[in-house]
Design a protein around this nucleic acid. Structure first.
Length: 150
DNA sequence: GCCAACGTTGGC
DNA sequence: GCCAACGTTGGC
């Protein structure tokens, strides 16, 4: 899951412990959250528009399939008049903080890594804010994130 | 700040 | 249902 750290960072999640992941307004991302995510799933937390961009830690899905209330709120920047509480168009999930790594696994590193370079996030033009990660990629990346920092 | 690579919108 | 125009994402 991608987030711009200026908007919501891994430190914010660490502070909050649990947060509702709102504001997803892309059908592919929504469908992935709705159809693929399960409670208990681990999630890579990615800082986009960051210096450097990369995966900064781990989180866990604690609840799925929650209608996104910001879509109903005319004051919200995520307001969508086509979504209503009776017929919600947008959904989110609850995410729990697990760990923040001492150093991020940067996008540059992912692109260079033989076992990670074909990850979705490393592909050109790939801008989905929520995207699937293959199990082997997940394991490799997690091990990299947990390495001792020199 | 630039711009490639999308996704969405709306006229027709 | 096509597609041009427009908006957004996000690395660089």
């Amino acid at each position: 899951m991608k987030s711009e750290p200026d908007v919501y960072s891994i430190d914010d999640l660490k502070r909050d412990k649990v947060t509702f992941w709102d504001g997803v307004r892309n059908y592919q991302a929504r469908n992935f959250m709705r159809d693929q995510m399960q409670e208990g799933d681990e999630v890579l937390f990615y800082h986009s528009n960051a210096k450097p961009p990369g995966v900064v830690g781990l989180a866990k899905i604690v609840k799925v399939g929650i209608p996104d209330p910001t879509a109903f709120d005319p004051q919200s920047e995520y307001f969508d008049p086509k979504s209503s509480p009776e017929n919600p168009r947008w959904y989110g999930v609850e995410v729990q903080f697990l760990e923040k790594w001492k150093a991020p696994v940067t996008l540059e590193e992912i692109k260079k890594h033989p076992q990670l370079k074909n990850m979705l996030v490393a592909q050109k033009g790939q801008r989905l804010s929520v995207q699937p990660v293959e199990a082997s990629h997940f394991r490799t990346l997690k091990a990299l994130g947990r390495r001792k920092v020199l």
